[in-house]
Design a protein around this nucleic acid. Sequence first.
DNA 1: TTGCCCTGGTGGAACGTTCCCGCCTGGATG
DNA 2: CATCCAGGCGGGAACGTTCCACCAGGGCAA
Lengths: 345, 345
Amino acid sequence: MTEEKANRAPTIIDIAREAGVSKSAVSRALLGQGRISEEARSRILDAAQRLGYVKNAMAQGLVAQRTHTLGVLVRDAVRPFYGQLHAALQGRAIEGGYRVVTATGVRDFALAEERRALQTLLSLRVEGLVVCSGLLPARDITPFVERVPTVVAGRPEPHPAINSVYCDEEDGAEQLVDHLVSLGHRRVAVLLVPEALSFTQYARTAAMVNGLRERGVDTVVTELADGREAPADAVPALLADREITAIMCPQDDAMVSVLERLRRAGVRVPDDMSVTGFDGIGPLTTPLLGLTTLRQPLDEVGRRAIDLLLELREDRSMPTRHIPLRGALVAGTTTAPPPPHPARR
Amino acid sequence: MTEEKANRAPTIIDIAREAGVSKSAVSRALLGQGRISEEARSRILDAAQRLGYVKNAMAQGLVAQRTHTLGVLVRDAVRPFYGQLHAALQGRAIEGGYRVVTATGVRDFALAEERRALQTLLSLRVEGLVVCSGLLPARDITPFVERVPTVVAGRPEPHPAINSVYCDEEDGAEQLVDHLVSLGHRRVAVLLVPEALSFTQYARTAAMVNGLRERGVDTVVTELADGREAPADAVPALLADREITAIMCPQDDAMVSVLERLRRAGVRVPDDMSVTGFDGIGPLTTPLLGLTTLRQPLDEVGRRAIDLLLELREDRSMPTRHIPLRGALVAGTTTAPPPPHPARR
DNA sequence: TTGCCCTGGTGGAACGTTCCCGCCTGGATG
DNA sequence: CATCCAGGCGGGAACGTTCCACCAGGGCAA
């Protein structure tokens, strides 16, 4: 069983020598296809076991022109949003017989790094590409579309040449709006966090504003000055407007930051002020916080993205598809009917 | 600029033909090493650009016997703990000129899958392996140690043949214990969550118990019946013991679950009961929750793990190293001096 | 002039696989 | 007895790259 330490990994030729056959025979035995006698077969498998053979995926991929690998670009592994999406993608890919190579972002992954990462994935000859980045603009993605089946997951991407699977932001925003309206809120603030170029957040914020206005609700849009400012920094200005009884945040993280500031200001949630978020993912979903938010169907997004990718592999000339998936309202303890006399706050 | 759609990716031979040189010249121009005239060089680079050439990492790796790739096994991408660790690893690896291939777990990654994933990484001929899994036992790791430099990150792994970088659990547990003792707690419960085989949790729980006993504190160890039970299910029994004024949890997630149950039971934290956690990672670190916990130095763990790996690559005969790193106590609002008459609760 | 080196360049082997093709053997068939 | 066929196996090309050995030609010193 114990072999002298080989400084080179054993190859099928080593196995061939060990088993007294040709490398062709070894290949056939290892792949389990082609004509090979039962006797030689077991002798070869035995030798492979003894030498601790591990196939060389590079050589295999090179000659077979197939890698059985899908590439995933993930913006920021630290955030549970991407973690969850990544796990869903990985799970479905494995079910489909593919391996996944991930290029994951360092926190604050620069755009240049994301582009470089895509090149790397391409150089590994992945058979499909899933882009999970709220930041990377379409013009950086289109060049890859014609080289390898590509799907953008987790954000709406209306570009006519790019397939995408994502949470339906408009519908989600409307669910939240309806929730607030049915509670009786008449003047609502929408927080706009200009996290540079993040399409998703922009889309959902816009949908919130539209939804509110359509329902005849007074709507105050508060945009933070620049990326340096914390979401919570908008709170004092909002409190100055004494008619506001609810704040809609574009993400749960921002929401938590707002809640903290409200607490420090002595404002009770939900008695004095209702607050909503968006995402419903990860540790923040604990009932301890009881966030009212919209849960994105990330598991389904991941599954559908892989399915779409594999379909695309079959038929490269398939028309582009954009697949919105419905999120679910999570009614927590951060929303309630507005106080009878908000101005007395 | 626009090329007719090539069904095969262009190779250096295509470039050579296009630029009217040999493939050797192309290789030298692309690598930027070896002797080549400025004129031919720019002609080649131009042709490469025009054809949209992307190098084939497999062919490169095959002939060069180097992949510039490190493999990372991550147990569960969904949990911020692994996400953070993963990001730190990736960042340092890129700095060192390596690419990272990740095998990430589906939630509740089965052990068998983790083993298979290690095989996959090996088949890609990674030049180093980082194992981030609290679950995978040493005997599954040792076979790989002699094939490729391997480091276990994020959990203590005392095996004499396995290098590891991790948060010093004993020290961390003692910091938390000292915190509680200095607040005046005299009877403390330690929650033991038997998440099958998780070494880390066992080590830190044991250290908490030892630390408490050494300081003469009454210590109640509460072990959950099996994996099916939620951490919070231990709460009623703990409340029955009216002398207990503090609960130590093995992880922040468990802590949050406990806090929620305590609130439902009408127990005020920290007035009636102090609670501590462990990890201090991710969204749960929000001041809104104010968890008293021990923050693991995951960024440093990741960095040191990669550094150790690269060192190991240089010198395969290096003696095994175990590198504990010190965590930091985060004093939040879930701990306070015990109530004067706890029994009156 | 001759010998030598330097520059810029070519051809071909090698990496570890898969797979096509062809060879051998032996038993069945005409 | 000659022929055929099928099973079992080996040889070698190919995949795309790197790198080594080699070569042509020009400049320069002896």
